[in-house]
Design a protein around this nucleic acid. Structure first.
Lengths: 203, 203, 203, 203
DNA sequence: CTCTAATCGAGACGGTACGTCGCGTCTTACG
DNA sequence: CGTAAGACGCGACGTACCGTCTCGATTAGAG
């Protein structure tokens, strides 16, 4: 279990045909992830959905994982960058809300990645990248091994976001942020008092 | 992603040869899970490792998943039965410790299931079974959708146990229970005061 | 161009299914050779024609050449055995006629091999095997390098037989034997007087 | 088996770059034919050997066969023109010797064509062209179908020349012509007495 | 303690996806 | 502005594993 999606990121191609091919392949992958598990998806299926030749897939990506990496790896890094401040901020709830809002605004993409067929792989990639980012931070608490803090914090956050995206639109980003903060963030950073009362519809 | 390992449980066979075949197949599966991902494992590989004929596998299990179900499903139910009281108990920490102790005492099996190549599948089966068990309980808190409570509670617990089993022997069941309680259980049940001080080596 | 069909001959299989598979594959090969060149024939085509699975081909033969070897190599050896006496016999015409008669009686097989799409390969295999057979014979004539004698004798004989089989039924084995003897055999062995007059319809 | 190399002959190009491209492509083809079979040769390989771009090949020839046609077809016609007189001449041996001498003087080219990887194809092209040339001649003998005479005469001649070119330099054109005449020409034209004694080193 | 039927190993079978390669066409970007 | 470089759609290659099946040859357990 040592996939590393980041290894697979691609340089921007110069040829216009390559740009097009990558675009349709990425779209096909995302489209298929809404229908089935990552490893039920076949390269032949991706090529067909993308309207490209089978061999063309391999001219761009060596494996399915590579394509998923190209689709997801950068998005994951972006979302993680948004997550880090949570651990530092005086008021961690604000950062948690910012995270949820961002995910809600890109619901289509993150639904495919967190609630679709690649959820497991994307989850692991999140944790893998998070581990790398945290290495140079001070240990937040002596009772909690830093590594476990990362695994739990990242994993539980992803799970809650995935659950939110899977259940549909009937829960707001604020509601989700409040739950996420109370269940995961506060226990980790020891800040449980800052969450505003939901009745105030705070902004 | 709707695997249901419980569907695959098997009745106890009467013929002595069947008993033997299932035993070696189960052992082969667990042994392989320590080396690679569940879906990198091949039925031909399992047969070979078990020292049995390829077709013999199908005489006992219709798919790899069925074998994993036979190996894991009952164990999962047992562990979950141990977990339920946590949510009710006056002192939830005691139940959490009982859970960790039990897992630590069957470290070999649970290492394969929670830290080996089937971690993802076993995790999902845990959540699936937990959802079923919780359905008839009252909603523990109005701020938290019951379904999310199950997903988060089960998932996070499995993650922490998996991390513990993966890192080796250098952390006690007590340490793990304390962390698990503080990070997951207490935020869920609203009981944060009952954890004894580690210095007291409480019994 | 150093194919060696004889390398590819197969032991008789014990399993009844294998016997059947080989039979239909051989038949498919012969059938296709009547329609197109050997290297226009595709393994997928052979499998389809044989009504067998594509992968099954490779369970029996590693290449197309191997299958052709299995079809042809033994037949070639048999025909060559019939050819050798020509060089020794007091009356070489009788042996030549025997050769032509035999080929005429197995017209279907030899049409596929000598006048069909594998003509070139079969021709080379004939020469290759003939070279091996002749090695231990005395040099028939000092003016003619033995090797060239084999190449010419075998090649020209195959050509004439191939021409005969390709043109249809309107020439008898006797006519063909007489031409073959006069054009190829007699110049090689120096016996030009023994051919009976066609008008006598000699027996 | 209906290749027709002559169809592929090319008009002389006017552009100087085109002249160059064709020259290097032709040379590359001949060079590769000394190493491997015609159909083991790849267009990519020809382009690489020629030091030209892959697509450039197609600007000059539509297929490999076309290139081979351009290389060989005219040479074949030339050699055949030299062969025809053999059948008419009073003293056919002189013409046979002329043929061998000519081939010997262009040994490099004819080695590639007759003893290299295209031997089979070139042989067939010889016979095909010869058939066309002979059509308007009177039937040389009633015992021998004209068509078979051509096939045998051309085929056997090519074989003997190919054998000579393949075996190296240690046999003179005279020796070869004498063998060729005795084995092939004389039996065809019924002239067996005119070959001079080799001891006389006739000129 | 036999005999019969279930179970076994071995592995062939029809399928299908894999990743590679060469084809011949068509586009791009460079010199 | 023409040409090399090479991406493209296509389809055959040979490999691997799937799940089904047919074989004898044990071998367990009922009579």
């Amino acid at each position: 279990m040592n996939g590393n999606l980041a290894e697979f990121r691609k340089d921007a191609p110069t040829d216009a045909r390559q740009v097009r091919s990558r675009k349709v392949l990425n779209a096909a992958m995302l489209s298929l992830l809404e229908e089935k598990t990552f490893d039920q998806i076949t390269i032949r299926e991706i090529s067909a959905r993308a309207g490209t030749g089978y061999a063309t897939f391999f001219r761009h990506y060596s494996t399915k994982e590579a394509l998923l990496g190209d689709v997801a790896s950068e998005e994951i890094a972006g979302l993680l960058a948004l997550t880090i401040p949570i651990l530092h901020a005086a008021n961690s709830y604000e950062s948690t809300l910012a995270l949820c809002t961002y995910v809600g605004e890109h619901r289509t993409l993150w639904s495919a990645l967190l609630a679709g067929g690649a959820a497991g792989i994307v989850r692991e990639e999140f944790i893998r990248q998070a581990r790398g980012l945290i290495e140079d931070l001070a240990n937040p608490a002596e009772w909690l091994p830093r590594d476990l803090g990362v695994v739990h914090g990242t994993g539980a956050t992803i799970d809650i976001l995935g659950w939110w995206l899977a259940k549909g639109q009937d829960q707001s980003a604020e509601d989700t942020a409040r739950i996420l903060h109370r269940l995961v963030i506060a226990p980790l950073v020891g800040d449980g008092a800052a969450v505003p009362d939901p009745d105030h519809h705070q902004g």
